[in-house]
Design a protein around this nucleic acid. Structure first.
Length: 224
DNA sequence: TGCATGATGTTCT
DNA sequence: GAACATCATGCAC
């Protein structure tokens, strides 16, 4: 770990937020504990086209093999392998034939646990985010929903396994201290979205009053 | 504003 | 072959 918290404090005059990256130990806890703490943190993706950053406003916890709604419920596969690795890495998967969703891996290596990033508020690079989204709309919809968040940030399967705690990584997670004061921000919880099993557990967390939070939709069986 | 539905392809059984 | 941690659209109210 070369990251010195003080080294990133002053990006003189750049206008870039100076808060440090989220430390890996912070993420090496159960997903249910990590999830609410991620609210207000900032996910950044640096590409040749530019930087897009989003402050997280909605997340969901997935507990791993004991959680019937988790991708790890049926054990380790090629797809979910990253979830079994060390914390602080991105687990990106493809779903519904056209969308990507992104998780932050929690708990130490050998255990599968993750937090799904469901929504965020774009705080940098809005023009690029808008360009990436195929549909036009209000700013609050740019990253409202897990697949939209990935689309706005340009996150795809190539970033599966990316390190979120490394300043040199294109995909990073910053502490959102500036955006968040625990006393002033109300965190709400409820059932997870779009899952059939385990819908009774209130492991979805969001910031109260945030217009960027996606609306709750229960799982609907698809017609055949 | 709120449902129902089709698009699309990867993964796992 | 079925299910899937979704989204955008179209139509009913």
């Amino acid at each position: 770990m070369t990251a010195d918290p003080h080294a990133t404090r002053l990006a003189a005059g750049s206008g870039v937020p100076t808060a440090g990256l989220v430390p890996r130990e912070f993420l090496g806890r159960p997903a249910v504990e990590v999830a609410p703490d991620l609210l207000g943190c900032v996910l950044e993706h640096q590409t040749a086209a530019g930087l897009v950053a989003a402050a997280l406003t909605e997340v969901e916890a997935y507990a791993g093999e004991a959680d019937p709604a988790s991708h790890a419920y049926r054990g380790r596969t090629r797809r979910n392998a990253v979830m079994y690795g060390p914390p602080g890495y991105a687990y990106v998967y493809f779903t519904y034939g056209m969308h990507f969703c992104m998780n932050v891996v929690c708990l130490p290596e050998g255990t599968a646990s993750a937090v799904l990033l469901r929504a965020g508020r774009i705080v940098a690079g809005e023009g690029l985010a808008r360009h990436r989204r195929l549909v036009d709309g209000p700013a609050r919809d740019l990253a409202r929903g897990p697949a939209r968040l990935c689309q706005a940030l340009g996150v795809d399967r190539a970033l599966d396994g990316a390190d979120l705690c490394d300043p040199a990584s294109p995909l990073r997670l910053r502490k959102g201290a500036a955006a968040r004061s625990a006393e002033e921000t109300l965190i709400r919880t409820g059932p997870r979205v779009g899952v059939r099993e385990g819908a009774d557990v209130p492991w979805r967390f969001w910031l109260d009053g945030e217009p960027t939070v996606s609306t709750y939709r229960a799982h609907v069986p698809r017609r055949r």
